[in-house]
């Protein structure tokens, strides 16, 4: 029997077929369905189909039917087993945590659908904060060699790192949670065709963040490595979401950024791609057959 699921005011419904009541009991499964691009969400007057498959890098349009998409995910993320097995094993674990993550992603989706990309960005940052301690710990708990895991964790926790997000960066850097090759994939950010403000957005970005793989000052395009996305997210958030006079931190002004919804509309996709893959990988690591 198919049900409409509601998470704190936002409804999720499966595309072409719906989600069974049994499946709906697993927040992790719902999160997977959302991130694979096989659901539609709605809140009040806002309805939006989520058809981007965030499990691929970069994200692509989902072309498979939901059941096939999930089976493909099980294969390509090396989980194995059946969909029913996945629902069963994920139903009971970390319910609070994944319910919250799911809710944040849903909020991101609704805000994006409304064109409020600045608001949508807020949820992306919240997701990063939520996962930065928990994912390394979740992952550590799945490893089969106690001695190594302890060594790894200790090196991450003890290191000279600034803030809790520093630990997450160090964790990612090791290339074990997410394989090194994925960390090197470069994705495009384009500020082209933004009503004459292309150069403004391009400039304000290059002024604040220095680690781009390549820059095209004519086409106003940038390429960023997967591994550098969290730093980019943190930098833009810190520079735009503060405007304290005299703090000398080179915060972004609204003169530089004529339309923040336009701006965030262009950077959100790359950031959400990153967060989605981390979320999917956190589930995949734990439930290998």
């Amino acid at each position: 029997m198919n049900v409409t699921i509601e998470i704190s005011g936002t409804s999720i419904e499966g595309l072409s077929g719906g989600i069974s009541q049994n499946a709906a009991r697993s927040y992790q499964y719902l999160l997977i369905r959302l991130l694979l691009g096989t659901v539609k969400v709605s809140r009040g007057g806002t309805r939006s189909k989520q058809i981007m498959d965030y499990s691929s890098l970069p994200a692509t349009v989902q072309t498979m039917k939901p059941a096939d998409a999930v089976r493909d995910f099980l294969m390509s993320y090396s989980i194995g087993g059946s969909v029913n097995r996945l629902i069963k094993v994920t139903r009971v674990d970390n319910r609070e945590f994944y319910k919250e993550i799911l809710s944040e992603f849903l909020n991101f989706q609704i805000q994006t659908a409304r064109g409020s990309n600045t608001g949508a960005f807020v949820f992306l940052y919240r997701i990063l904060e939520r996962i930065s301690y928990s994912v390394p710990l979740l992952y550590a708990s799945t490893q089969s060699d106690f001695r190594d895991t302890f060594k790894d964790l200790r090196s991450i926790l003890n290191a000279d790192i600034k803030g809790e997000l520093g630990m997450f960066k160090k964790f990612l850097d090791k290339g074990r949670f997410i394989e090194s090759i994925k960390l090197c994939v470069a994705q495009n950010i384009s500020f082209a065709n933004l009503g004459g403000h292309d150069a403004d957005y391009y400039k304000l970005t290059c002024d604040r963040f220095k680690r781009f793989v390549s820059k095209d000052p004519n086409a106003h395009e940038l390429e960023i490595k997967f591994l550098d996305i969290p730093d980019f997210l943190i930098t833009i958030r810190n520079r735009f979401f503060h405007s304290l006079t005299g703090d000398e931190k080179n915060n972004i002004t609204t003169i530089e950024m004529p339309d923040s919804d336009e701006y965030f509309g262009r950077i959100n996709p790359v950031i959400s791609s990153f967060l989605a893959i981390v979320a999917l990988q956190s589930i995949a690591s734990k439930y290998r057959t």
Binding site: L57, P58, S76, C184, V185, A186
Partner: peptide, 18 residues
């Protein structure tokens, strides 16, 4: 110098770049 040359979840164009 890498065994990881055909990762399914990285789209072909990006894989070629890598």
């Amino acid at each position: 110098g890498s065994v990881n040359i055909d990762n399914q979840k990285i789209i072909e164009e990006k894989m070629d770049e890598l």
